[in-house]
Design a binder for these strands. Structure first.
Lengths: 118, 118
DNA sequence: CAGCATCCCCACTGATACTG
DNA sequence: CAGTATCAGTGGGGATGCTG
């Protein structure tokens, strides 16, 4: 993600980092314990492998996610939330609760039930 | 902002709403009490009037900001955070603290001092 | 002071195919 | 299974000028 050069506030820096379309849902899945590329890919509706990797890399650059690579075949890599990632997750968690509220108002309770959120 | 059609999670809905480049800083300024278009414009470095209005409108559509128009000339309009907006502000507030942390690590303490954040 | 209309660019994203 | 490379589209956002 492109970073702006003039800031009014530090929050713009963080926002530029997590603006990416899939960033919050990636953090959400990581927090749930999903840790491999392929399981992340399967758990996130509509994401492509390219974007998944790109977003994970950006999140790692800013110390929001960590990565552990294991030796040998088949290849195995675990992604996880860092302490900082867990702090950002708190913000994502608020987005989730507001999202549920918005969907309820919009008569999308069926979706929420499907997902086991109601 | 374009909304996706397939969701893994309600948080993606909220994220699509606040993804806009200036949305968080607008919420931040509104929470500080900045309420008119022109004062918002002046307080946010780099924003254009077009984007400011567009983002305010989108935030209003989802009940995150409210708008009060006064009669008479000169025109006067006040924007403000709704209850929902204040909840989202909690998330923005987390972004702010992480942003400060990131800037400190990146030796940008001078910027923070200029802004009175240190 | 508040807000709308247009034109235009490029950054973000998606699709597809290939490699260790 | 994890990751890279390339090409193409599109819509988000910047600039500018006009209106109530």
């Amino acid at each position: 993600m492109k970073q702006r050069t003039d800031y009014t506030c530090p929050l713009e820096l963080t926002h530029d980092i997590i603006r990416g379309k899939w960033k919050p849902i990636i953090l959400w899945q990581l927090n749930k314990g999903t840790s491999s590329l392929s399981s992340l890919e399967k758990s996130i509706l509509g994401i492509s492998r390219k974007m998944l990797i790109q977003h994970l890399k950006e999140l790692a650059e800013y110390g929001i996610v960590g990565k552990k690579t294991y030796e040998g075949y088949p290849l195995k890599v675990d992604y996880f939330l860092t302490d900082r990632g867990r702090r950002i997750f708190e913000a994502v968690s608020i987005l989730q609760s507001v999202g549920i509220e918005l969907m309820l108002e919009d008569n999308r309770g069926d979706f929420l039930r499907e997902k086991g959120l109601l």
